[in-house]
Amino acid sequence: MDKYIKNLINRLCEIYGYNIIEFQGTMPGFESTWGAVKKYENAAEVIFFSNVNDYNSLNKESFLNSLKNTLQCDNIRLIQIVVGNNVNERIYPQCEYIFINIVDNKILYYSTGLENKVEELLNCMRRASSNYEKTEVSIITYILITVNVLAYIVTAYLSGNFVDSNINVLVFLGAKVNYLIARGEYYRLITCMFLHGGIMHLLLNMFALYSLGPFIEKIYGKTRYLIIYFLSGIVSSIFSYMFSTAVSIGASGAIFGLLGAALIFAMKMKDRIGRGFITNIVSVIFINLFMGFSMSNVDNFGHLGGLIGGSAITLLLGIGKRY
């Protein structure tokens, strides 16, 4: 049910210019804490979702007061989307309503005057059910993970150890070594991004890339994603070269660049996705930086460089056309 509702909200935003709204607190009569809102000059239209079994437990007055404070608007039109299986009789919510049978993906009943909204919802429902938008495979993320894993297999073979990498092997394969870079081996600013010091180092970074990469790939598109990843990694290596003399390896600088890209997206789209997303991204960044500065053998300057580089590059590139 939650996935069905999120799909409808996303399409209302993408096709008809609604914004996503998160309702504060838990109130009876709601199937989802997310809805869609469209603001006009002196009014707002709010679409929210209820389950057919408890749609009438809504406290309309309390809900309206909460929305007036959130939207800073007194003239609010409520449209209640009731979702569930088929019923044998008409339903009578407290607001204007549209009843959707999610089993058959059909609209059964609706209030008089909502014909335009019904057409919008039908269009969104048709697009969802007919695979209008093909599911995108995060091919770039999978390629990056594959390259990192293959590089680790080579490292492990040459090291004669699958758990820990030999430092001499890492230097031979292209780790960031300051005096070698100063001697003209600039390729190390890139190759070091694909080397890891041990199996746990690899697994942690690949898990982070697998979790974050598909989101960035979807938001910015494959080309921008590659640019953000590689340039963030290079800036990370440059920061490490400038401020740290230690041998450095790992994909974490590029991954911090992806976090920077996610932060820029959240800040630019805060009116559509809510400030909670910004808080979550900032929390993840802060926790990772704090952990890095609390542990030894962590290239914190590389992390900072990746974060700064990813944020700056994303500002220059902009967000993909779909947003």
Score class of each variant (00 low, 15 high):
93 P>C: 01
111 S>V: 02
120 E>I: 11
32 S>I: 03
265 F>H: 15
58 L>M: 03
154 V>C: 04
98 I>S: 03
115 E>T: 01
301 F>W: 14
34 W>H: 14
249 I>F: 06
197 G>R: 03
75 N>P: 04
139 I>T: 10
98 I>A: 03
68 K>E: 13
240 S>W: 08
99 F>P: 01
62 S>M: 04
88 N>T: 05
148 N>C: 13
36 A>Y: 04
290 F>K: 10
306 G>E: 09
318 G>F: 10
281 I>A: 03
293 F>Y: 09
128 A>W: 02
27 M>R: 00
168 N>M: 09
314 T>F: 06
190 I>S: 07
291 M>T: 14
167 I>Y: 12
143 I>A: 12
164 D>I: 11
119 E>F: 13
162 F>Q: 11
245 T>Y: 12
21 I>M: 14
142 Y>M: 09
239 F>G: 09
285 I>N: 06
55 Y>C: 01
184 G>P: 12
133 E>D: 07
173 L>S: 07
143 I>K: 05
216 I>E: 07
163 V>D: 08
269 M>A: 15
34 W>F: 15
121 L>D: 00
182 A>P: 09
173 L>T: 12
261 A>Y: 01
109 Y>T: 13
161 N>T: 12
44 A>D: 08
223 T>C: 08
156 A>Y: 04
170 L>Y: 03
164 D>K: 08
305 G>I: 04
36 A>I: 10
66 S>R: 02
189 L>C: 03
107 I>C: 02
8 L>Y: 01
28 P>E: 07
129 S>T: 05
13 C>M: 15
219 I>D: 13
123 N>A: 02
102 I>F: 07
200 M>V: 14
58 L>W: 00
309 G>K: 07
148 N>M: 11
27 M>Q: 05
184 G>T: 10
197 G>L: 06
1 M>N: 07
167 I>K: 15
303 H>A: 13
244 S>H: 13
210 Y>C: 11
89 E>N: 14
41 E>D: 12
137 V>Y: 14
28 P>A: 07
292 G>H: 04
196 H>I: 05
21 I>C: 06
263 L>P: 11
212 L>R: 10
235 V>M: 08
29 G>M: 00
259 L>K: 09
163 V>R: 04
145 I>Q: 03
135 T>K: 13
235 V>G: 04
177 V>G: 06
229 Y>P: 06
261 A>I: 11
117 K>S: 13
269 M>R: 15
47 I>F: 08
117 K>T: 06
187 Y>I: 11
88 N>K: 07
222 K>Y: 12
220 Y>P: 14
83 V>M: 01
273 I>T: 13
129 S>F: 02
219 I>C: 11
6 K>W: 08
10 N>G: 10
91 I>Q: 01
205 N>K: 08
249 I>S: 03
209 L>C: 09
317 L>K: 07
57 S>L: 02
9 I>P: 10
223 T>A: 13
122 L>K: 12
240 S>I: 06
229 Y>G: 05
197 G>Y: 01
35 G>T: 06
6 K>P: 06
29 G>W: 00
112 T>A: 14
239 F>I: 06
56 N>D: 01
136 E>P: 07
294 S>W: 02
308 I>W: 05
